[in-house]
Design a binder for these strands. Sequence first.
DNA 1: CGGCATCCTGACCGATACTG
DNA 2: CAGTATCGGTCAGGATGCCG
Lengths: 141, 141
Amino acid sequence: MSVTNGRVPTVLSAEFGLPVTAAEHEACPVTDVLRRIGDKWSVLVVVVLGRGPRRFNELHRSIENISQRMLTRTLRALQRDGLVTRTVYPTVPATVEYALTDLGRTLLGPLSALTDWAIANREDIEVARIRHDEMEERPPS
Amino acid sequence: MSVTNGRVPTVLSAEFGLPVTAAEHEACPVTDVLRRIGDKWSVLVVVVLGRGPRRFNELHRSIENISQRMLTRTLRALQRDGLVTRTVYPTVPATVEYALTDLGRTLLGPLSALTDWAIANREDIEVARIRHDEMEERPPS
DNA sequence: CGGCATCCTGACCGATACTG
DNA sequence: CAGTATCGGTCAGGATGCCG
């Protein structure tokens, strides 16, 4: 990781207690990535493709209640970021296969760290939410 | 991890090649968590609080161009999920201190896995985007 | 089979002004 | 100091219909 301009990315600035400028925030890779894969379907698609290449309708069935529109959009976005490849075979009708790129595959590791955390702590979060919601209905006497 | 109903969470179903039902998707802890921290500011706030407790305006200055409104909303949401505590000291004027809970601190690890990935691969993604965008301006001859 | 075009709703988010 | 209230803009995402 080289930082040529003498500044570090946003989150690191914050960790060093420095203020964060507008320009840095726009460029923050973490914010950028989280907003990319933080949408409703990207992670699901990446994880499914982590098991191997899939055709469009295979994905559509695997993720059941994703709309065609959103599956297309999600795949296009992942493709644009170089995480997924799209291969068209000139059959009739056309066959299209999606697969993770090498870059996409490197995301599986960090992702599983987060998914493991989510699974391990879902109960605690659920309990915290319920307690919090009850508190504001009947404020503590 | 105990799965009492004989089904596994969404992403795991997908990994085993099973279809994903609507009910499971709503309950998917991964989707749930990602939508929670995938917003524009939550990760930044958690990381800053990872360095120690902070008062409202300290956070406001550390993250510079977050609006008061969004800082309040982000903190409330993190508090609701049991990731952040809010302590009011009865001074005049009031002093409010925010800090990570134990649960919140456990999120720092998985988060850094993702931030490291984001920082390590930002260039590749940037290049992929530019290449992709150029391709659709002038389709390959 | 694998899309794209259109319409529409609600969530997210920023700006601004006001308050105990 | 630490918020709340209100307004408005942008955009994710769902429903539906058409196409090579």
